[in-house]
Amino acid sequence: MEAAIKVEHLTKTFGEFTAVKDVSFSVAAGEIFAFLGPNGAGKSTTIKMLTTLLHASSGSITVNGINPSADADAVRRSFGIVFQDPSLDEDLTAWENLEFHGVLYGVSKKVRAQRIGELLNLVELSERKNDFVRDFSGGMKRRLEIARGLLHHPRILFLDEPTLGLDPQTRNHLWSYVQKLNRDEGVTVFFTTHYMEEADRIAQRIAIIDHGTIIAQGSGDELKQQTGAQTLEAAFLSLTGSEIREEAGSSLDHMRQFRAMRSGGRR
């Protein structure tokens, strides 16, 4: 099967600092792929290069067979994205944000009306659709952001920590919807998350990136086997080490991670 995303020797530097270092992987069309890694590992930077928001320093990328640096518009037509950081217009209502997106992505009026209704239901914002986004809670904004990313049914869906800050109910709804899109329309899904259990359950294949380099790839079971761990979380910790990234973590944080690993191992 043809690769939906193919990345070879991808590198991104910001000044002296190398955020992504010689990364190679490929995602088959119709696959659900999880991209995992500690904070600051280079996940969002990679997604930004795949989605035309950043230029790669070196290496090659093809998305749906097209190089984003060469034909950004063609690549943009092929994907949808939910960003890690907020990207809503707070001065518009929930409905207007969705309508804006639908028009921008050329979704026909009829389909637009139907999908906006369906998605507002999915994220349980139907009653608030005419309220300004600036009055929403953090979780509500997140839900709206997700609804927007799903509106135009792209070939490839990028989800950068989509479930961050969401309650378990909404997380479940979201993933069933995404799985349904994948099953019914063959949408390729590329997502990041810090919930290992989620990645293990949803993703068909997983890559783990640390300090800008891919350190392991395979199915959830393969990664567990490789490390002799019982859960993906334990496998993740044994691959990436249990130190906290960026700031030196407090001893309390270390203890918490250690405990998570231990209890993970027992389960």
Partner: peptide, 17 residues
Amino acid sequence: WDRQFGFLKETMVAPVS
């Protein structure tokens, strides 16, 4: 402002010129 509030990203990835 759009850049600081993040909304700019939404227009930057849209499939229009």
